[in-house]
Nucleic acid binder design. Sequence first.
DNA 1: GTGGTCTAGACCACG
DNA 2: GTGGTCTAGACCACT
Lengths: 132, 132, 132, 132
Amino acid sequence: MIQMKGGGIVQFQASIPIYLQIADLIEMWILQGRLEQGMQVPSVRQLALELQVNPNTVQRAFLELESAGVIITKRATGRFITDDKAKLEQMRQKILTERTSEFIKTMREFGLDDAAILALVEANADAMKEGL
Amino acid sequence: MIQMKGGGIVQFQASIPIYLQIADLIEMWILQGRLEQGMQVPSVRQLALELQVNPNTVQRAFLELESAGVIITKRATGRFITDDKAKLEQMRQKILTERTSEFIKTMREFGLDDAAILALVEANADAMKEGL
Amino acid sequence: MIQMKGGGIVQFQASIPIYLQIADLIEMWILQGRLEQGMQVPSVRQLALELQVNPNTVQRAFLELESAGVIITKRATGRFITDDKAKLEQMRQKILTERTSEFIKTMREFGLDDAAILALVEANADAMKEGL
Amino acid sequence: MIQMKGGGIVQFQASIPIYLQIADLIEMWILQGRLEQGMQVPSVRQLALELQVNPNTVQRAFLELESAGVIITKRATGRFITDDKAKLEQMRQKILTERTSEFIKTMREFGLDDAAILALVEANADAMKEGL
DNA sequence: GTGGTCTAGACCACG
DNA sequence: GTGGTCTAGACCACT
């Protein structure tokens, strides 16, 4: 049994396909290290139950992850996280960089210079800390 | 005539409705001050031509912007950007804060502490500056 | 309306997923030049009707073709064969070579030398001509 | 101990049932004469070990081969390759003809005439010879 | 009318 | 019990 975020039920947002959200969710789990290398990936049916969606939807999410090389399917045995550590680390770095660049780009488009961006990040980080 | 980003043609990504991408685009233009308060909003036909999409699609984008209160339709006159300066500024702040919080949250989920996040932002900002 | 092979109904063989057979079928149509560059690709629903399968199955076949770069999807408009002539020609050559190499390899494994293979091909080609 | 192709490990492709691939493999061995008529058929366990698959899978492969008449099970003694020489030769001829006809048919669908097909085979055979 | 997504449920192949 | 495929049918988003 996999520990859901906060132990609660995952809420999907409309306007983005659920199967993509699931794929993203699991990719995050893996890249964040919540799922270890090995047979950790839960089965289609189990995930469908936990996420309260149709098994076909989970199936499709896994299809995405497989074509992305994150997981490997062994017929009639289960799905496994790739044991290519380098690949995972590379993907992690890629996502970190992408998200950061995208964030900076947006902020700049709003006219913020680097100092202002850093200040904004710092202020928000502090605010979020207190919020906890 | 509206100046496109870099003078080029805007590329839409397949997985998000085009009309939403257009609405976002225009909202950004307004919030970033590229479009001034007044009757600046280009016509549906013109935008459709420039963006090379179906006029219906632009129409829908405008509908979104209207319901968000960003633009106002005056019958038989045209569309105008709201002159409610406070509202625009408020939306601007809201977007800035939202994006920043979301960014920080994601980074933390990857195990980065605040110092690491700031460092990452700074490094990327530098890298992007050189790239230009 | 697309002309089926011989005007008849396509029969699918068990043991190979139908959606793969459909994808192959259409890829063949394209590479053989039966479908021209343009809006030729029939819609999901139409093909499903003609092939007497579920629309979802056709949909999945198209997914394959799209990820292979053979067709392009324009939302709410239809699917189009890629107009990248070079790419199509390249795929054609690749398939021809692959099939031929595979054929030769198999024949050699049965102990036939090149002369024997050529003779076999020639004999069969003649026989098939008479059969028509 | 059976000599694998090139002494290496056999790689199975994901889209075809492993047991069928194994059955095909063994049938090829027999028809190509690598396995002689007699009690040559290796045991389920041994094959499973060498091919690194589940013994059940090998078992199923043997079932296929038995129903095809290629091997015969003698209770409490083991599995034997059929000593019906005529049958084996007949199967060999059948496979050769089938594969060749299929190959020619495909090539013709691509618009190649017999001369072109022969040329293609010859060219590929030469290329493959140099490659070795 | 087009493609995209999702559900519910069934059956099969595999190990 | 696992994944894979397929159907039937529905609803939505988009142009």
